[in-house]
Design a protein around this nucleic acid. Sequence first.
DNA 1: TTATATCAATCAATCGTTTGATTAAGTTTG
DNA 2: CAAACTTAATCAAACGATTGATTGATATAA
Lengths: 209, 209
Amino acid sequence: MDKEKIDKKDHILDVAERVFSEKGFDGASTRLISGEAGVNMAMLNYYFGSKEGLFLAIFERKISSFQDILQNLGNDDSIGAWNKMEKYIEMYGEKVVNNNCFQKLLYQEMSMNRSTDLSYKLRDMLMKSITELDKILREGIANGEFKKDIDIPMVIAALYGTKNYIINTPMMSSPLLGYDINDDNMIETRLKPQIKSFMKNLLKSYLHN
Amino acid sequence: MDKEKIDKKDHILDVAERVFSEKGFDGASTRLISGEAGVNMAMLNYYFGSKEGLFLAIFERKISSFQDILQNLGNDDSIGAWNKMEKYIEMYGEKVVNNNCFQKLLYQEMSMNRSTDLSYKLRDMLMKSITELDKILREGIANGEFKKDIDIPMVIAALYGTKNYIINTPMMSSPLLGYDINDDNMIETRLKPQIKSFMKNLLKSYLHN
DNA sequence: TTATATCAATCAATCGTTTGATTAAGTTTG
DNA sequence: CAAACTTAATCAAACGATTGATTGATATAA
């Protein structure tokens, strides 16, 4: 029954991820989480030790899948920097729809500005993607593809910030964009292409000579 | 003693604004807030009725000062759309440093995606600024200053999202930018000029023909 | 039997809130 | 002026409710 156990733990983590992202860590009670997951309250402590242990487990589960996704993109010499940027934006835009709850939760935790092991681990994880993007931008400057005076940190902030703004504040972005951001179908058919297209156009005109 | 009473209420609101922005609504206990403010716990209920009343009072106080700041900018026919954009970015960038805690709190509340009176009121408040920006962009398209195929909602999202990303996740943006985002002096001397300059350059190249 | 899984019941701690007493400050009255 | 009254401000203490966590009993499966 090892399979079922893992499935049940995974189910709890799925539910907890959603509830935490909706209510925040303090706002989500263990009773609510266990209730929504359809398990006894004591199961949370049985499986994860504590509420914080459950919270950490949500991130532990995802961190591995976030590794090496954007890896070895900056080390490829066969394509130009702008091509790499486009690939980065493509892959990045693809991850927008998936892991919606987790992205929200991740950003929420980073906003707390806590000096915890989790925060540092998440920062390091995110920094890996950012470093890759930084590498691409530097390469583009070095080989003359991009202007010399572009503001690399701000480009990165614009890319990540724009996405976060849209998915974290659907109450603003939905009327702004004209469709429901909470609708998975809309995200797939409209938001993803729109973000990708806009980011490419926006950065193309800014970066290029 | 009306003066002193207002000052004390204002002091409590200042402290509560900071504590709420740091810990979130549920994470900030009334004991902590009253303790940090140096007042008896019962004073919070005496002045504001309840914890939620205190929370609301924080926004009520600021909402008025957010009105008409970006007003009648879009109705001025004497200057071009791009000039208006620059003015908007200037004013907007200026508000970055001020109301740092409040901006964080505001974004936090909007991220909760709650269907409360407060959320709707805040949305309407923010929409006023956005509508003004929208008007400027449409005007620029209409008079040929800007390209016809610019993505207006995404431009708005990029402008607001970039700022939010930087001030809400100092743990990321500080190492990224190379200076401490939590330092008020650094915000004034470096961040504000950098955001303004970048946003102008970024949008100029994207919007213009 | 042994080990794991699940449950209702309960724990101490903390939460937001209320209370009743006390102080401070004005206002009225004699 | 001063004594009496009124109102607002402040406080320590306690309230009931909810929190995260634990217990010991029970069920299940190897």
